[in-house]
């Protein structure tokens, strides 16, 4: 029979080992995913990806139209989302955050932040696609914007709350109108954090597939007209990965690698910006 201290030591060692094993297991699984992504996708990454449009099966092609479509829709979505998100976050932090209505908005924003993106796609389908009688790049951008707004709102509120009240009081003491104080002092002081919020939102939407399927649809050809169906990297990857053609699957892997690298880069950039903002005097 083991003594009580011995049992405790054994239980503890088992627990510590289990935690370590869990970490190794998780990192291995995730590392393995990245490894296969690089292995399968790297061979497909060549100049054609950026200069040729999506091909018919069996012919040489690239992902130019999909990359352009993704960039256009994401840029437009960010233009819409940054304005709304920063203003909404400012309202929560500077004006109405303590009111009951502020709590409701904050709660709804948190729900939107985690809501299934496919539902946003369905909503935009009913809101934009159906009334305008057709899939369009514009509808895709609206769907992405709806996904980006909660991220920007949340980070804006969090970062503005970190600004010391002394700044606000200093502005008020000079007789500065409140909005000038916010614009010239609070926003400027929080600049790095706001940029991080934007970058995180951009990273979030650049890989989104589900909301684009029934808003922007996809397009086999190059199209820069936002009123027509538009290709996007995630939608093309989805279509090609499920196809039976080897060269289409190769393109899908290359596209997936491209998206993963983009998202990782933006996220790292966001961290660097945030870290630099924190060290400022």
């Amino acid at each position: 029979m083991l003594s009580r201290p011995a049992l405790r030591a054994i239980a503890n060692t088992t627990f510590v080992t289990a935690c370590g094993v869990a970490t190794v297991l998780a990192l291995t699984a995730l590392g393995f995913i990245l490894y296969s992504l690089f292995k399968q996708g790297f061979g497909g990454l060549d100049l054609n990806i950026f200069t040729k449009d999506t091909p018919a099966p069996g012919s040489v092609g690239g992902l130019r139209n999909a990359i352009e479509g993704s960039l256009m829709m994401c840029a437009m979505a960010m233009a819409m989302a940054v304005g709304v998100g920063i203003l909404a976050g400012t309202w929560l932090a500077e004006y109405g955050g303590a009111h009951p209505y502020g709590h409701v908005i904050r709660f709804l924003n948190d729900v939107l932040l985690a809501a299934p993106s496919i539902l946003v796609g369905l909503f935009v389908y009913e809101l934009v696609v159906r009334p305008l009688h057709g899939f369009s790049g514009f509808a895709g951008a609206v769907a992405l914007a709806l996904l980006a707004v909660p991220v920007v709102t949340r980070t804006t509120e969090d970062i503005l709350r970190l600004q010391p009240d002394a700044l606000r009081e200093a502005g008020a003491a000079l007789g500065t109108p409140r909005w000038t104080t916010i614009k010239e002092i609070i926003w400027r002081g929080a600049g790095g954090g706001l940029l991080t919020g934007g970058l995180l939102a951009f990273a979030r939407i650049s890989g989104e597939t589900a909301p684009l399927l029934f808003t922007a649809l996809s397009n086999q050809f190059q199209n820069l007209d936002l009123t027509k169906p538009m290709a996007s990297l995630p939608a093309v990857i989805f279509q090609y990965a499920l196809s039976a053609y080897d060269d289409w699957r190769r393109l899908a892997w290359a596209g997936a690698l491209l998206i993963a690298l983009t998202v990782l880069t933006i996220n790292i950039l966001g961290r660097v910006v945030a870290a630099r903002g924190n060290h400022r005097p």
Binding site: A88, L108, L112
Partner: peptide, 21 residues
């Protein structure tokens, strides 16, 4: 302040829009 309030309310409208649609 109205603009900020409007932007915040837009979030409510968006979620309500999802439910209604």
């Amino acid at each position: 302040e109205g603009l900020c309030f409007g932007a915040a309310t837009l979030l409510l409208v968006a979620l309500a829009g999802v439910v209604v649609s």
